[in-house]
Amino acid sequence: MKTVLWATLTANGNYAQSSPEHPPKKEALDDFAAHAKTAGNFIVGRRTFEGMQAAGGGGSFGDVDIVVVSKSIEPIPGITVAGSPKEALDYLQQKGHQTALIAGGADLHNAFLGQGLVDELIFNVAPVLEGKGLHLTIDTDRYQYKDAQLLDCKPLGGGIIQLRYAVGCF
C-alpha cells in the first residue's frame, strides 16, 4: 500500500497551524478533499479530528474511510479508531485501499515519518509566515537524513504552491 503524507507548510517552513482567526486556505482544503476522495480514506490524529468536528467538517466526507489514530478517544459511530500508525495502515489495507492518505496533525505525521511509513509527501506551501511553529521530523532522538525526489510542482491558486516528493526508494 502506498502511503501519502499531506500537509500545509508556511512559507518559512513551519507546519501550518490553523485557528478561527487564521483558517486554512480554501485552495488547500479543496486539494485535501480531492486527495481524500481519490484515496477513499484519510488518517488523522485525535486533536485534528476533534478540530474537524468542532469546525463542522468531521462528517462531510461521504464514503471516505476516516481513521483516527489515538489511544485515548472514545469510539465514534462510523469512524475507525486505531491505536498506532501501523494499525491504521493494516485496517485500510484489509479494506482493500491501494493508497492511504495521512492527513494530520504534526504528531501523527512525525510518528509515520519516524517509523519509515511514508512513501510520498505532498506539501502545500501557503503564503504566510509563522513565528513559532511545529516542525516535521523523521527522528527526534538522533540526526537522520533521508533523500526525497521531486515528482511534481504546481500552483493551487491563492498563492499556494504544491510540492510532491517520493521518499526513500527511487
Rank of each mutant, 00 (worst) to 15 (best):
Y145G: 05
G133V: 04
K146L: 10
K132H: 12
D141L: 11
D147S: 08
H135K: 08
A148R: 07
L121A: 08
K146F: 01
F123W: 13
C153S: 11
L121P: 09
A148C: 13
D147C: 01
L134T: 01
F123Q: 01
V125R: 12
G131W: 09
L150H: 06
Y145H: 12
I122V: 15
C153P: 01
G133Q: 11
V128K: 08
G133D: 05
Y143M: 09
V125T: 10
H135Q: 05
Q149G: 06
Y145S: 13
P155Q: 08
K132P: 10
P155R: 03
V125C: 11
I138V: 11
D147E: 12
V128Y: 09
D141M: 11
D141G: 13
L121S: 03
K132D: 13
I122Y: 09
L150N: 03
K132M: 11
V128Q: 14
I138L: 14
P127N: 12
L151Q: 06
L151W: 00
E130L: 15
Y145R: 14
K146Q: 14
D141Q: 15
L136A: 03
Y143N: 06
Q144H: 11
Y145T: 13
Q144C: 07
L156W: 02
V128P: 03
L134K: 08
Q149D: 03
P127F: 13
N124L: 07
T140H: 13
D141I: 09
L134Y: 02
D152A: 00
L150D: 06
Q149M: 01
